[in-house]
């Protein structure tokens, strides 16, 4: 039986980024690598072997699941593995995002950051992806 992760335990930063990449679509390993690299402006580089190890651990924890590759998908030696975020993964990622948002709010309160404006977000105002379940309610995940 897959052990169920407590969504309130903080996620390691690279797990958070992987789940964020899968939040709106299914991806294979190379796609996850590229999206994380782009989103973090090159600050987080996921190298191949550890990426696949982390995807394995995320699957063990029930946060992602492996799915069949689309028919037209091809990699060097065959069809690549595709991954999809699970409901538990969404909750854990959402909880982590709220926790980080809480830190950002605290930084704004202490005037380390300017007050928030919607048009300041990269790419303009964005809608956060809706979370399927939230058994604990809102607020920073802690």
């Amino acid at each position: 039986m897959t052990p169920v992760r407590d969504v309130d335990v903080a996620l390691p930063p690279h797990w958070f980024q992987i789940l964020l990449a899968l939040a709106d679509r299914d991806l294979h390993g190379l796609g996850i690598m590229n999206e994380v690299l782009e989103r973090t402006s090159g600050r987080m580089r996921l190298w191949p072997a550890m990426l696949y190890r982390n995807l394995g651990r995320l699957a063990d924890e029930g946060l992602v699941t492996e799915i069949r590759a689309p028919r037209n998908a091809e990699a060097g030696g065959g069809r690549p593995r595709y991954y999809r975020i699970t409901a538990l993964g969404r909750r854990a990622c959402g909880a982590e995002a709220r926790r980080l948002a809480g830190f950002v709010a605290a930084a704004r309160q202490k005037k380390l950051l300017p007050p928030h404006r919607a048009q300041d977000a990269p790419g303009g105002p964005r809608l956060l992806h809706p979370v399927a379940h939230n058994t604990r309610g809102g607020g920073p995940g802690c």
């Binding site: 390993g29 190379l30 191949p48 072997a49 990699a75 060097g76 030696g77 065959g78 593995r81």
Partner: peptide, 14 residues
């Protein structure tokens, strides 16, 4: 079981 062909793709991309 961890030696995936797509590791090579990822390596070449890096």
């Amino acid at each position: 079981d961890a030696r995936e062909p797509e590791l090579e793709d990822a390596f070449l991309a890096c």
